[in-house]
Design a protein around this nucleic acid. Structure first.
Length: 160
DNA sequence: GCCAACGTTGGC
DNA sequence: GCCAACGTTGGC
Protein backbone atom coordinates (compact mmCIF):
# COMPACT_ATOMS: atom_id res chain seq x y z
CA UNK A 1 0.00 0.00 0.00
CA UNK A 2 1.34 3.37 -0.97
CA UNK A 3 0.74 6.13 1.46
CA UNK A 4 0.85 9.76 0.43
CA UNK A 5 3.86 11.79 1.56
CA UNK A 6 2.99 13.93 4.58
CA UNK A 7 6.16 15.95 5.21
CA UNK A 8 7.50 18.55 2.79
CA UNK A 9 10.30 20.87 1.84
CA UNK A 10 9.54 24.12 0.04
CA UNK A 11 12.22 26.23 -1.59
CA UNK A 12 12.13 29.98 -1.70
CA UNK A 13 14.67 32.59 -2.61
CA UNK A 14 14.93 34.78 0.49
CA UNK A 15 15.52 37.96 -1.51
CA UNK A 16 12.14 37.30 -3.14
CA UNK A 17 10.18 35.88 -0.20
CA UNK A 18 12.01 34.81 2.94
CA UNK A 19 10.80 32.89 5.96
CA UNK A 20 10.72 36.20 7.84
CA UNK A 21 8.51 37.62 5.11
CA UNK A 22 6.11 34.74 5.67
CA UNK A 23 6.34 35.24 9.42
CA UNK A 24 5.29 38.88 8.99
CA UNK A 25 2.53 38.13 6.50
CA UNK A 26 -1.11 38.45 7.49
CA UNK A 27 -1.97 35.35 9.53
CA UNK A 28 1.61 34.28 8.74
CA UNK A 29 0.05 32.73 5.66
CA UNK A 30 0.42 33.10 1.91
CA UNK A 31 -0.73 31.25 -1.18
CA UNK A 32 2.26 29.38 -2.60
CA UNK A 33 1.67 30.87 -6.03
CA UNK A 34 3.81 31.03 -9.13
CA UNK A 35 4.86 27.39 -9.17
CA UNK A 36 5.04 26.42 -12.84
CA UNK A 37 6.53 22.98 -12.70
CA UNK A 38 4.29 19.98 -13.17
CA UNK A 39 5.96 17.71 -10.66
CA UNK A 40 5.77 20.37 -7.98
CA UNK A 41 2.15 21.09 -8.88
CA UNK A 42 1.28 17.41 -8.68
CA UNK A 43 2.63 17.22 -5.14
CA UNK A 44 0.54 20.21 -4.09
CA UNK A 45 -2.57 19.01 -5.90
CA UNK A 46 -2.44 15.31 -5.18
CA UNK A 47 -0.63 14.85 -1.91
CA UNK A 48 -0.49 17.99 0.23
CA UNK A 49 -3.20 18.35 2.83
CA UNK A 50 -3.89 20.98 5.47
CA UNK A 51 -1.70 20.49 8.51
CA UNK A 52 1.21 18.76 6.78
CA UNK A 53 4.53 20.02 8.21
CA UNK A 54 6.95 21.90 5.95
CA UNK A 55 10.65 22.68 6.04
CA UNK A 56 11.04 26.19 4.63
CA UNK A 57 14.25 26.20 2.62
CA UNK A 58 16.20 29.23 1.40
CA UNK A 59 17.92 28.80 -1.97
CA UNK A 60 20.10 31.02 -4.18
CA UNK A 61 21.55 32.94 -1.26
CA UNK A 62 24.69 33.23 0.85
CA UNK A 63 23.73 30.44 3.25
CA UNK A 64 21.29 27.99 1.64
CA UNK A 65 19.38 25.81 4.08
CA UNK A 66 16.26 25.27 6.16
CA UNK A 67 15.27 28.61 7.66
CA UNK A 68 12.05 27.83 9.47
CA UNK A 69 9.09 25.54 10.00
CA UNK A 70 5.77 25.98 8.25
CA UNK A 71 2.68 23.97 7.50
CA UNK A 72 0.17 23.46 4.75
CA UNK A 73 -2.68 25.83 5.58
CA UNK A 74 -5.37 24.95 3.04
CA UNK A 75 -6.58 22.21 0.80
CA UNK A 76 -5.40 22.53 -2.83
CA UNK A 77 -7.09 25.16 -5.01
CA UNK A 78 -6.35 26.97 -8.30
CA UNK A 79 -3.52 29.53 -8.47
CA UNK A 80 -5.22 32.86 -9.25
CA UNK A 81 -2.16 34.29 -11.02
CA UNK A 82 -2.59 31.94 -13.96
CA UNK A 83 -5.66 33.99 -15.00
CA UNK A 84 -4.12 37.42 -14.29
CA UNK A 85 -2.93 38.85 -17.60
CA UNK A 86 -0.70 41.33 -15.75
CA UNK A 87 1.14 38.64 -13.83
CA UNK A 88 4.36 37.08 -14.95
CA UNK A 89 2.71 33.81 -14.00
CA UNK A 90 -0.19 34.34 -16.39
CA UNK A 91 -0.87 31.20 -18.42
CA UNK A 92 -3.03 31.90 -21.47
CA UNK A 93 -3.35 28.18 -22.09
CA UNK A 94 -5.00 27.48 -18.77
CA UNK A 95 -8.74 26.85 -19.00
CA UNK A 96 -10.75 28.48 -16.18
CA UNK A 97 -13.02 25.45 -16.20
CA UNK A 98 -10.03 23.17 -15.79
CA UNK A 99 -7.22 25.18 -14.21
CA UNK A 100 -3.75 23.96 -14.93
CA UNK A 101 -1.96 25.32 -11.84
CA UNK A 102 -3.00 24.28 -8.36
CA UNK A 103 -1.51 25.48 -5.07
CA UNK A 104 -1.92 25.38 -1.32
CA UNK A 105 -1.61 28.07 1.34
CA UNK A 106 1.48 27.97 3.54
CA UNK A 107 1.65 29.22 7.14
CA UNK A 108 4.77 29.91 9.18
CA UNK A 109 4.77 27.84 12.37
CA UNK A 110 8.01 28.58 14.20
CA UNK A 111 11.45 29.99 13.83
CA UNK A 112 14.33 27.64 14.42
CA UNK A 113 16.76 27.99 17.33
CA UNK A 114 19.40 27.66 14.62
CA UNK A 115 18.98 27.29 10.88
CA UNK A 116 20.05 24.04 9.27
CA UNK A 117 22.41 24.90 6.47
CA UNK A 118 22.83 22.89 3.31
CA UNK A 119 26.37 22.32 4.53
CA UNK A 120 25.04 20.72 7.72
CA UNK A 121 22.58 18.62 5.77
CA UNK A 122 25.39 17.35 3.55
CA UNK A 123 27.45 16.50 6.61
CA UNK A 124 24.68 14.43 8.19
CA UNK A 125 24.67 10.81 6.97
CA UNK A 126 21.05 10.30 7.99
CA UNK A 127 20.08 12.99 5.46
CA UNK A 128 22.08 11.58 2.55
CA UNK A 129 18.91 10.79 0.63
CA UNK A 130 17.16 14.13 1.06
CA UNK A 131 16.13 15.74 -2.21
CA UNK A 132 18.15 18.92 -1.69
CA UNK A 133 21.43 17.02 -1.59
CA UNK A 134 20.73 14.95 -4.68
CA UNK A 135 22.69 16.09 -7.69
CA UNK A 136 20.66 18.21 -10.05
CA UNK A 137 17.58 18.31 -7.85
CA UNK A 138 15.76 21.51 -8.64
CA UNK A 139 12.28 20.64 -7.48
CA UNK A 140 10.85 23.51 -5.46
CA UNK A 141 8.18 21.41 -3.78
CA UNK A 142 9.37 18.03 -2.63
CA UNK A 143 8.51 15.38 -0.06
CA UNK A 144 10.79 14.47 2.82
CA UNK A 145 10.35 11.44 5.02
CA UNK A 146 9.13 11.80 8.60
CA UNK A 147 12.51 10.49 9.72
CA UNK A 148 14.41 13.10 7.70
CA UNK A 149 12.11 15.77 9.09
CA UNK A 150 12.92 14.69 12.66
CA UNK A 151 16.65 14.76 11.98
CA UNK A 152 16.43 18.30 10.62
CA UNK A 153 14.54 19.36 13.77
CA UNK A 154 17.26 17.73 15.85
CA UNK A 155 19.99 19.64 13.98
CA UNK A 156 17.98 22.81 14.43
CA UNK A 157 17.95 22.34 18.17
CA UNK A 158 14.18 21.94 18.39
CA UNK A 159 13.05 20.12 21.52
CA UNK A 160 10.14 17.85 20.81
C1' DG B 1 29.07 35.50 -12.89
C1' DC B 2 29.74 30.65 -14.17
C1' DC B 3 27.97 26.51 -15.53
C1' DA B 4 25.93 21.83 -14.93
C1' DA B 5 21.63 19.79 -14.68
C1' DC B 6 17.21 19.83 -15.72
C1' DG B 7 12.40 21.00 -17.89
C1' DT B 8 9.92 22.83 -21.79
C1' DT B 9 9.16 24.03 -26.50
C1' DG B 10 8.63 23.43 -31.23
C1' DG B 11 10.24 21.93 -35.86
C1' DC B 12 10.40 17.96 -38.31
C1' DG C 1 7.80 10.83 -31.05
C1' DC C 2 12.51 12.58 -31.40
C1' DC C 3 15.73 15.82 -30.08
C1' DA C 4 18.15 20.34 -30.49
C1' DA C 5 17.65 24.76 -28.76
C1' DC C 6 16.45 27.42 -25.23
C1' DG C 7 15.28 29.04 -20.51
C1' DT C 8 15.64 28.24 -15.57
C1' DT C 9 17.52 26.65 -11.22
C1' DG C 10 20.73 26.93 -7.73
C1' DG C 11 25.28 25.88 -5.67
C1' DC C 12 29.61 27.66 -5.86
Amino acid sequence: MTRRPTHWLLKSEPHVFSFDDLWRAKKRTTPWDGVRNYQARNFMRDSMRAGDPILYYHSSCDEPGVAGLAEVASEPYPDALQFDADSKYFDPKSDPDDPRWILVDVRAVRKLPRPVTLKAIKAEPRLAKMGVVQKGSRLSVQPVTAAQFRVVLELAGVEE
